[in-house]
Amino acid sequence: MITAERKPLDEIMESIDGCGRILLVGCNECVTVCAAGGRKEVALLASALQMASMKKGRTLDIRELTLERQCDPEYVEELTPHIDQVDAVVSMACGCGVQEVARRFKKTHVYPALNTKFMGASEGPGIWAERCQGCGDCLLGLTGGICPIARCAKRLMNGPCGGSTNGKCEISNDVDCAWHLIWERMKELGIEDRYEDVIAAKDWRTGRGGGPRKILREDLV
């Protein structure tokens, strides 16, 4: 899923400076799961913004709404009845959701309340870690199901570098060496011999290198 974290309150407050009526919009998908922008977080942020404004001797008119999916136009449409009655939208979705709202409502300011972080998985309650960078040409089949692009600090396709110590990356003891994990997994799978196959230079066109990407499925259009 896509993970995100709330921006500092001061930054959000600064972005809505001068706005009295705010539509605070959450999303029921990924950001709900990572506890950054679901219904609960919308309520908390609304209360926090209200109190921060009260401190300054103002009150805000805050409407709270959490959409099923903020990155789909059908759901974003639900904001229509509110748009003319607010000065700004504050979105608690990932960057995709923020942009979808901005695209639909061209004359309304839309401000992000979250920093979108990465595509990741949960490693336990309250812990999420990066797993995929969407390179567009998955090589997990070659690397024992562990992605060196997302999980090696130098995205080495032929690692590990010389800085791996006790299975940890040289940048931090909190980061596993991806290539150590790959090697251990290769051994478990009995495919150690494949380690010596050099993975050739990657064609980044399938990733961001090729410019903004789009998927077109004729059968669904």
Binding site: M54, K56, G57
Partner: peptide, 13 residues
């Protein structure tokens, strides 16, 4: 509570 205090300043003004 500073939020309440701010709001009452607002009401007073």
């Amino acid at each position: 509570n500073p939020a309440k205090a701010g709001a009452s300043r607002l009401a007073a003004s």
